[in-house]
């Protein structure tokens, strides 16, 4: 997996009064996905196919 991208952007300070259990709060969900066909070519697709067929996660795959 590609390493971290580095953005030259400054995160805002924590707003006054914000608090959450374990500092994490889920506030919404992701919009419904679009079903599309991946083109079955290239090394990254082959890695994707390997994970999908063997039901492995990214981190299991990296081991």
């Amino acid at each position: 997996m590609a390493s971290a991208q580095v953005f030259n952007i400054t995160l805002p300070a924590l707003p006054e009064g914000w608090s959450a259990d374990k500092d994490f709060k889920a506030v919404g969900s992701v919009s419904a996905a679009t079903q599309r066909n991946l083109e079955p070519v290239g090394p990254h697709f082959l890695a994707h196919a390997r994970r999908k067929r063997h039901q492995r996660t990214f981190s299991e795959d990296e081991r």
Binding site: I9, T10, L11, P12, V30, S31, A32, A33, T34, Q35, R36, N37, L38, E39, P40, L46, H48, A49, R50, K52, R53
Partner: peptide
């Protein structure tokens, strides 16, 4: 098996996911 639709048919993100900066 790798090129089978079971593997290629894949959900794709509708919108970008990222971080808001204020």
């Amino acid at each position: 098996q790798s090129i089978h639709p079971m593997v290629t048919a894949t959900p794709h993100l509708r919108n970008a996911i990222g971080v808001q900066f204020v």
